[in-house]
């Protein structure tokens, strides 16, 4: 039997393509993320020039200030320079890790941000991991027995949680558990001695904020997983798997779920911005000393340099997360590798 020209024709490009296109794909994604980062930096600067009036007025509104003092302050903050010069200085500063100085605390913004990173990572990390596990598990179970009792209750609960402002849920939990859990901060005023006890103390404080964040985000994950598994369930290859004699749970575990997991994963990463937004309100409710609380405080001020710094950092981290998701997706899904 002769191999037809078409057969060779179709097989050829696949083998030739893979090498060069990986580089192109990665370069494209990284380039896109860099453009977004530049956008964020520029937006961070120009947004704060939109303020009607003089930033110094906002800054000094509670304290009577003399004209010489004002002039001095203006010079110290570089506000007497032309806008483009200010922008260049700002970008130059960012590159060197200089985010300016807080109006309210007279401290470098970079320093204030740095000390808030760890608590936020602890809170967001714990809540996200738990939410992914819970959401995916519930989503799979609900989809597989679609329309059943479990599906209806779980979907109902998820929809109700999805319809809730996060901070309100936090406030409710605070009122409901009044006195059982600490209401503010990450550690007790007088922290206990020893690492184990300290860790326990932090865990104790972490419980409520983590629960709040978890409840709000798992609902999304569950709904996404449920609908993407439902989407897969009509697929022909599942019929093939059944025809091969696979047990129902094997068909689900080996064929349906891995396929449904791929789109779900991208969506989870895409919704990282939502998690960040959630962090701001949850940290504000529980006075958790992270970046969210810093955002809240600088909004209330308003402490514009801090706000500017936090904005760039939060938006930047979301962009980086998305880049990671894009690159990971290519590793995990063989179809993306080829197209």
């Amino acid at each position: 039997m002769t191999t037809s020209p078409t057969e060779q024709h179709a097989a050829d490009p696949d083998e030739r393509r893979s090498g060069t296109s990986t580089v192109r794909y990665v370069a494209g994604k990284v380039g896109g993320a860099l453009v977004s980062l530049v956008f964020v930096v520029a937006l961070g600067f120009f947004l704060f020039r939109m303020i009607p009036g003089d930033p110094l007025v906002t800054m000094t509104r509670e304290r009577p200030t003399g004209p010489e003092q004002l002039a001095h302050l203006r010079e110290r903050l570089g506000l007497d320079q032309p806008v483009w010069q200010q922008f260049l200085d700002y970008v130059g500063g960012l590159v060197q890790g200089d985010f300016g100085t807080s109006y309210m605390h007279r401290r470098p913004v970079a320093e204030m941000i740095a000390e808030r990173v760890a608590p936020t990572l602890l809170l967001v990390g714990t809540a996200t991991v738990l939410a992914v596990l819970l959401g995916l598990w519930l989503g799979v179970r609900a989809a597989w027995r679609r329309g059943g009792m479990f599906d209806r209750t779980q979907t109902g609960i998820a929809l109700a949680l999805w319809s809730m402002p996060q901070f309100w849920l936090g406030l409710l939990l605070l009122i409901a558990t009044q006195g059982v859990f600490p209401s503010r901060g990450m550690t007790s005023v007088d922290p206990p001695d020893g690492f184990a006890l300290q860790a326990l103390d932090v865990g104790w404080h972490l419980t409520l904020p983590c629960l709040t964040l978890l409840l709000v985000i798992y609902a999304q994950y569950m709904l996404v997983m449920r609908s993407s598994l439902l989407e897969e369930m009509g697929a022909d290859y599942l019929r093939t798997a059944r025809a091969k004699g696979l047990r129902d749970d094997l068909v689900r575990r080996r064929h349906a779920v891995p396929n449904a997991l791929l789109p779900t994963m991208t969506l989870i990463f895409l919704q990282f911005g939502m998690v960040v937004s959630g962090t701001v309100t949850v940290e504000a409710v529980f006075s958790w000393p992270g970046l969210g609380l810093l955002t809240y405080e600088s909004l209330r001020g308003p402490d514009l340099p801090v706000l500017q710094g936090v904005f760039v950092i939060l938006a930047g981290s979301v962009i980086v997360m998305n880049l990671v998701a894009d690159l990971l997706y290519r590793v995990v899904d063989p179809r993306v590798r080829a197209s």
Binding site: L47, M274, L299
Partner: peptide
């Protein structure tokens, strides 16, 4: 895509902070 990934709440809050 840029606006899609930005934390919407933070951006909205910043807009509110700098505008009347």
């Amino acid at each position: 895509d840029f606006f899609l990934v930005l934390p919407a709440l933070v951006l909205a809050a910043v807009l509110m902070a700098v505008l009347p």
